[in-house]
Design a protein around this nucleic acid. Sequence first.
RNA 1: GCGCCCGUAGCUCAGUUGGAUAGAGCGCCGGACUUCGAAUCCGUAGGCCGCAGGUUCGAGUCCUGCCGGGCGCGCCA
Length: 683
Amino acid sequence: MILPVHERLRAHLTRVLMQLYAFAEGTASSAAIEYPPNRILGDLGTPVAFELARRLKKAPRVIAQEIAGAFGTLEGVDRVAAAPNGYLNFFLERRGFLIDRLRTAQAPTQSGPGKAIVEHTAINPNKAAHIGHLRNSALGDTLVRVLRFRGVPVEVQNYIDDTGVQVADVVVGFRVLEGKTLDEIRTLADSTRFDYYCWGLYARVTEWYEEDTARLSQRAQTLHDVEHGGNEAAEIGAFIADRIVRCHLETMARMNVDYDLLTWEGDILRLKFWAQAFDVLKASGAVYLKDEGPLAGCWVMPIEEDATPKAQRPTPRAQHPPEAAREPRSDVEDEDAGEREKVIVRSNGVVTYVGKDIAYQFWKLGLLGRDFEYRVFAERPHGALWATCSSGGAASHPPFGGAAYVYNVIDVRQSYLQKLLKQALLAAGHPEGAERSHHFSYEMVALSHATARELGFAPAPDSEEAKRPFVSVSGRKGLGVKADDLLDTLMRNAAREVASRNPEFADAERDRIAQMIGVAAVRYFLIKFSTNKMIVFDLDEALSFEGESGPYIQYAVVRANNIFQKLRQRDGLDEGALLARLGEVPAGELTGENGSHEIWELTLEAARLDEVVEQVIRSLEFSVLAKYAFSLAQAFNAFYHRSPILNEERDDVRRWRAAAVLYVRNQLTRALDLMGIAVPPRM
RNA sequence: GCGCCCGUAGCUCAGUUGGAUAGAGCGCCGGACUUCGAAUCCGUAGGCCGCAGGUUCGAGUCCUGCCGGGCGCGCCA
């Protein structure tokens, strides 16, 4: 791990600058640490001389030379060099660096300000999960792993909208379209893929509504019944939600995605969380009752038009007070554009989705003053999965809610609502809560035309959809790739590949490995794009196990592991034995005296994992992690081809190569784990 | 109409607190399995970074405008 080295170097540089140029405390600019384009120039570098050029009225090259001259010595740094162009570069002490990295396995964790809640998945419990949901879970779960890697305690929540229209629609499907009773539905659920069945039924209900919009009254009535409880529709709804959630959990478990708590919307209603939040919002004036106009009788929240994005812009323009910037708008004729309002409580007294979400967010941040009751939803090998409930909860349970930070993983279409959530927190007098609420937003997953065609979803040739660059998925229409179908296909392909390479494997072993490979393929695929880029899902592309893919990285690690297995078997050289003598082995292969810097390059690159993770958390951009892992695997594969290890005759060279491979293997294994990908024993 | 996002190689995309020569995968073409596993590696070709201005030592990255595409703006969730 490299971050501790960065910190030491930065601190030392600050001291040097203060001494050299008599900078006052805190005014010596903190040097950015970068990597020179190649190891001949240096291992680490900083452009600090460029920043100081104006202030000191000297050429960067001169400043760099002065700093290099005054640098003195720093543990772990071998040499300092002022590059002719003004960069200041550093060469690390290689032997000590690699031995240290191998000795201390874990990254030093930072103690943060408290617990983080990550909410992700949140699929409507009325149908099977599809490819779009997988993007959410893959991102959410990776966020969880990455935060934990940095030592942040994380509570993972999955929000279950068990009392919404989507569940109500399937209730209508069973009762009205199919005339089924709860017992009949239960029998059906026990004998079929229930989530698949509901997938089709939901699409049929949607069509049924479209044939005659008067039928929508059935939906309204059912929704009302489901929300209020104590009737057959509600019972059926509860049954459907419970069963579908269990299906989703199984699907997600295949992806190595797991949760700590399931929060049920029904409990938020029954426990009157909203009433509590409503009092706070009313008292603070964040919402008010409209007594005239089209929204008469509604409780509304004013929407601030230009809330955040440009407020903290450090351009010259920002010198003007925000009011002045806003002024020119008043000359526009449409007055109401400036004072838009969002309905929080409808005139019939029913709270909207936003209202429920506000209450939930308050609870997450420990600002509500109420708590759920809790029950065990499922037992797992690693402990219980908890769910909220409204009554009869367990006497003792882990503490939930009350987090210092909240990440809501929801697609970009919800940005507007998530912004309102922050506004509500601000208006209710919780600016720090607003500050610590993060909308982790990502773009949609659509289908390529080729894949849509393959699945029989091709849009009509003359339709608008046909002219678009992609085909939108729609759960409502039953149009999309079901998550389990995708996973099945991937694993079938992987199993074929595994079997062709390892014909001696028993079926169970083959399938176990195929599953790891399939998961690697999907999860990597869903992570490798920037979150703000739409994924146009193409089956053939996602099925690829070659090139930039999860299996590629797995393959590199499997090879590295094989080398060690053979080293142990043949030479009796295990990790401990290797490490024990590394301090005395001639290090020419590592230092470059043998003519190659390859091992060192690998080592330094492998050390960057903690730095990459930090960047990932800062930017919430996991493609950075994916690319890093891939390029490290790529570097290893190239090294593997060029430089023999087992068959290397020079003992010192063999040992240093093995040490580098060991470190790369460790770091790649960690990187894969952060992406929820396991390493197969063979593949 | 207003707001947000995207535009980089034939295709799909990296390049994220502005930094040294703009990279990768796929595809194309040509090479490497008697040698630690070829799900691999090596090499060739391929670029007005949408367009035009601006900011500065330095811009694919920041600002402004324009062009093209996507999404959002409901007493739905």
